[in-house]
């Protein structure tokens, strides 16, 4: 492949994006990822960067109803999409999402760095219905690493919500 090594700046692309209900019309360099756009562009630093390469799940957001690693999504690609991040899980009046409540109750985090990703993943997981057994939750939450090792508590939190919602 011929390498164009001449130093140059990026081209920019225009896009619209709805984040947690608020719509944005933006122009960003084409190489901007959704994660960097959320964090650096929109100041929504809840979504975390734990690897920038799809290896950890800390950047998980819900894009058009599906959980994805926002570090591997080009912002340009999500033009016209709806994004839900950890900042958008609680209701506008501040009432926490049941899974957020359960995370606190079950101490499902320590440092809290993986937590936004775990929560977005967990909320999507409940929607998907992959909460029928403990093994199923473990496997379907395996895209979110937690170096603090809060896994048993995360499992307990998800299980509790799944049971309450009749999904376990």
């Amino acid at each position: 492949m011929p390498d164009d090594l001449s130093p140059r700046g990026p081209e920019t692309v225009a896009l619209t994006l709805t984040v947690n209900g608020a719509s944005h019309a933006l122009r960003v360099p084409a190489w901007t990822t959704l994660l960097d756009l959320l964090r650096e562009g929109l100041g929504l630093t809840g979504s975390k960067k734990g690897c920038d390469h799809g290896q950890c799940g800390a950047c998980t957001v819900i894009l058009d109803g599906k959980r994805v690693n926002s570090c591997l999504v080009l912002a340009a690609r999500s033009d016209g999409s709806e994004v839900r991040t950890v900042e958008g899980l609680a209701s506008p009046d501040g009432a926490l999402h049941p899974l957020q409540e359960a995370f606190i109750k079950h101490d499902a985090f320590q440092c809290g760095y993986c937590t936004p990703g775990q929560l977005c993943s967990g909320v999507a997981l409940l929607q998907e219905g992959h909460t029928r057994t403990e093994d199923e939750i473990r496997e379907w939450m395996s895209g979110n690493l937690c170096r603090c090792g809060a896994y048993p508590n995360i499992l307990a939190a998800i299980l509790e919500v799944a049971r309450k919602e009749g999904r376990a």
């Binding site: 929504l44 979504s47 950890v86 899980l89 926490l96 995370f103 606190i104 985090f109 809290g112 937590t115």
Partner: peptide, 12 residues
């Protein structure tokens, strides 16, 4: 419960 729990689950 952790006193910083709310901050951690809301991304703040």
């Amino acid at each position: 419960d952790r006193v910083d729990g709310r901050a951690k689950v809301t991304g703040t």
